[in-house]
Design a protein around this nucleic acid. Sequence first.
DNA 1: ACCTGAACACCGTTCAAGT
DNA 2: ACCTGAACACCGTTCAAGT
Lengths: 227, 227
Amino acid sequence: MQAQEGSGRLNRRTVLGAALELVDEHGLDALSMRRLGQALGRDPMAVYRHAANRKELLAGVAELVLDEVEIFTDDAHWQIQLRRMAHEMRRVCLRHPNVVPLLVTGPLSTPLGLRPAGTLRPLEQILGILIRAGFAPGDALHVYRAFYGFLYGHILNELQELIVDPEENEALLQLGLQRLPLREFPHLRRLAPELLEYDGEHELDQGITILLAGLGQQLETTSEAYT
Amino acid sequence: MQAQEGSGRLNRRTVLGAALELVDEHGLDALSMRRLGQALGRDPMAVYRHAANRKELLAGVAELVLDEVEIFTDDAHWQIQLRRMAHEMRRVCLRHPNVVPLLVTGPLSTPLGLRPAGTLRPLEQILGILIRAGFAPGDALHVYRAFYGFLYGHILNELQELIVDPEENEALLQLGLQRLPLREFPHLRRLAPELLEYDGEHELDQGITILLAGLGQQLETTSEAYT
DNA sequence: ACCTGAACACCGTTCAAGT
DNA sequence: ACCTGAACACCGTTCAAGT
C-alpha cells in the first residue's frame, strides 16, 4: 500500500510490483492504469512506457508471480521432485489467490510458441525432470499434461472452497446447504461436516499419490523408466 | 447475432441467451450491459430487471452453459459414468471456450453453500454416482475432488493449446519455439512435432484411465467398493 | 408502480501540445 | 526525443423524472 512517491526512475519491475500489490490487496478489477499510476505517484500514462497495454500488464503480473515459484534442482527421485514442485506452486498460488485466474486462463488460446518465456519455464522444468529420469520425450509430455492439469485443477478447487473467514464458515455452510432442496441435493447436504474439514495440502498430496500410482501402472509395461 | 427486436416481453432466459451469444462470438469483454441492451433492442437499463448487476449476469451465463451438460442416468459402471461425464463436460466447454474462465474461476472464494444451485449440480451428481457404487460419502468427496480437479485442469490445458487456425499452427509453433533460447528450453524446442499432434479427447481419456487406475490401487485396501 | 434515460464516476488508449 | 495531460469513446450503476 505504500505509495512510491515520484522519486527516482520507474522500471518495469517496480511497475509490476506495484500492480501485483494492488491485485493482492484489492482484486483484479482494482488494477486499472489510472489507479496504478496513482499508486506510483505518476501520470497514468507513465505506465505505458513499461507495458504496452492493460493485457500486457496483467501478463507481466502473472509472470512476476510465477517467478516466485522456487525451483529445486537436486537429484531427488523424479516423483519427489514433482511432488515438491506441486506444493511449492500451491503455496505461491495461495499467496496470490487473486492472480490465479490470470495464471490459468491468461494465455488462453495464445499459441504455445508465442507465450512469454516465464509461462513456459515450468513446462520446460518438468520435462527436464522426467527426461532425466528416463522418460521418452513424448511420454514426458503426456505426464506433464496429466500432472499440470491436475495441479491447476486442484488449486482452483481449493480456492473455490477456501473461505476467507473461517469463523463464519460453519454458519454459512449450514445455512447455504439448507437452502438447497433436499430432494435434489441429498448427498451434498449430508456432507457438511466433511466439507468443513477440507485440508488442501493433504488433498493435493493424496491426489498426486493417486496420479503417480496410476502413471506407474500405465507405464510399467511400456517403459523401463518408471521405478 | 440476430438482434431481438423490441417485440414481446423480455425474460431472464432470453437475456442470458443473448449474453451467451455475445460472449461466444466476441469474448467476455464484449459483454457489457450497454451492448447487451443493444443486442436485445432495448434500453441498457432493461437488463437490470433480469440480473442484479454485471457479475450476476456473468454467473447466469455460466449456469446457462452448465445446463447444456447432458446428464446420463443409467446403471452403467461408475467408472464409465465418470468417463462419459468428463467427455460431455469437455465438449460443452469446447463449444463455449470464452465462458470457461467463468466456470473455473467464477465462484472463486464464494462459500460453497452460497453458490447457485446450477454450479453445485455436477458435484451432487458425481457424489450420487459414487455413493450408489458403494463408496463411503467421505471417500466419494475425495474422489470427486480428484476427478473434477483433473477434469478442469485438462480443459484449461487443452484450451491453452487449442489453436484457432490450424493452418497457421505449424508455422507459429516453429517460429515461437525458435525464439526461445536453446540453452534455457532444450526439451521444449525438441518437442515441436509432438506438440502439433495434440489430441485433447484422447489425452483426457488417458488421463482418466491413469486417475482411475491410481484410485483403484489406493482404495482396494480400504474399501470393497472398488471393482 | 413501472419504465426511461440523463448523469456520475469511472475506464483504456490516442494523440496533440508542450518541453 | 521525451513527457504530459487533454480528449475520445467507451464502461457500470444510480436516480430523478416521466408515464
